[in-house]
Amino acid sequence: MASDAEVAAMRQAITLSSFGLGTTSPNPPVGCVILDRHGVAVGAGYHRRKGEAHAEVHALNAAGVAARGGTAVVTLEPCNHVGVTPACRQELINAGIARVVISIIDPTSRGDGGAAVLKAAGIDVETNVIPDETLTVLGRWLAATVRRRPYLTWAYAFDERYSDEVDEQLTAELRSRADLVLGHNALEEGVPEGHSPDHFTLPQGPASDLQRWLSACYATGSRAILVAGTRHGSTLHHNLDYVDEIVITVRRTPPAGDLNTATADLVPAGFELVDIAPAAADVRVRLQRSTSAAALRAAATRSELHRLSPT
């Protein structure tokens, strides 16, 4: 069982992992904290983008010799294959780490996985540590990887009279956690020039055939997409099975107003309300596909996931 210090370190690692949202794809956003043999945090890091050092390497470099005999707390199972960068499980072994605390098992890790190799090397390994909290950052990547298509968020104004103004606000607020943003007239990176150009490109072709377009987006490196506004509303309404999350801005209506008309048909079939954020002039409603959260929790907490081919 993870100690209080390790759980606290995992929450720190989750926060660090969010710094990589919008830039790591096709790799996952991962955070890592190194505790010395006394349980004191001595190093931390996160993965910024594919082709650069992984979270574990940054954290080990920050910790230096203090990592020997210590614990690595990492949001995702350390990778088990040598690709653009060295295998993280070997970096941990070389650094003399005695224990590794993992939140979520990596479905793309080759062979038996990094956790199994670490155990074989005599390192104590703990898995499934607060996975629900880790999914707040890693969930979109995990969903995309398991289903082989990007996680799709649709954000729009419920009252089209305010559409242009709200679309700009939603795009500005939500784009940093998306790889791609599809607005009224253009497709662009969520974080401009945030991804590695060697491993990520914009897909070609229109988004009218949603299934084919999402497949093209996945193939070119995208794992999370934001569609802003109602311009593509008809396509999305007819293909809601491919929409994972909906963010709707609802303008406040006086108590004596027509509240039924103002809020009717807000939640489409198959979605559930997961968050409401009131503001001065409106209310932000977040919906998620009903099956998504439960399916991701099940995938994240299984001790042995079916291993997918690495991207």
Rank of each mutant, 00 (worst) to 15 (best):
T127K: 13
G111A: 09
R148C: 05
T75C: 12
P131C: 02
I105Q: 10
L202P: 02
D198V: 01
R177L: 01
G114N: 08
C79E: 10
R110F: 02
V129F: 01
P107M: 14
I93E: 15
D106P: 06
H195G: 09
R110H: 09
L202F: 00
I93V: 15
R147D: 05
W141E: 00
L138Y: 09
Q90E: 15
F158L: 14
D159K: 08
V73W: 12
V82G: 12
G114E: 00
A157S: 14
T85I: 15
I104R: 06
D124F: 11
C79V: 15
S176Q: 04
A98W: 12
G96I: 09
E91C: 12
A143D: 01
R110Q: 13
E126A: 09
R110C: 11
I97E: 03
I130W: 06
N94V: 03
W141L: 06
W141I: 01
T171R: 13
A66N: 12
L182H: 06
R149D: 08
D167K: 08
T75S: 15
E77Q: 09
G190A: 07
A186C: 05
A155F: 11
A72P: 10
S103A: 14
S196T: 04
P78G: 11
G83A: 15
H184N: 10
T75M: 08
L138C: 04
D132A: 15
A186Q: 11
R148A: 13
L182M: 07
A66E: 13
D164A: 12
K119W: 03
A87H: 14
V166W: 03
A186H: 08
A120S: 10
D159V: 00
Y162I: 04
G114K: 11
D159S: 07
L142I: 08
R148Y: 00
Q204A: 14
T85L: 10
T134L: 05
R147Y: 01
E168K: 04
P192R: 08
E91R: 15
Y156H: 08
A87I: 13
S103H: 09
D112Q: 15
L135S: 01
L92Q: 13
N128R: 13
I102Y: 08
A121I: 03
N128A: 15
Q90P: 02
D112S: 14
V84Y: 12
E168S: 07
T153C: 08
R140V: 03
G113R: 10
L180F: 01
L174F: 03
S109D: 14
D159A: 08
T71L: 14
P131E: 09
D106L: 11
G122D: 05
A143C: 02
V84S: 14
C88W: 10
R177G: 04
V73R: 14
G69T: 02
Y156Q: 06
A155E: 05
V146T: 04
A72N: 14
I123Y: 07
T134G: 11
V101T: 05
R99C: 10
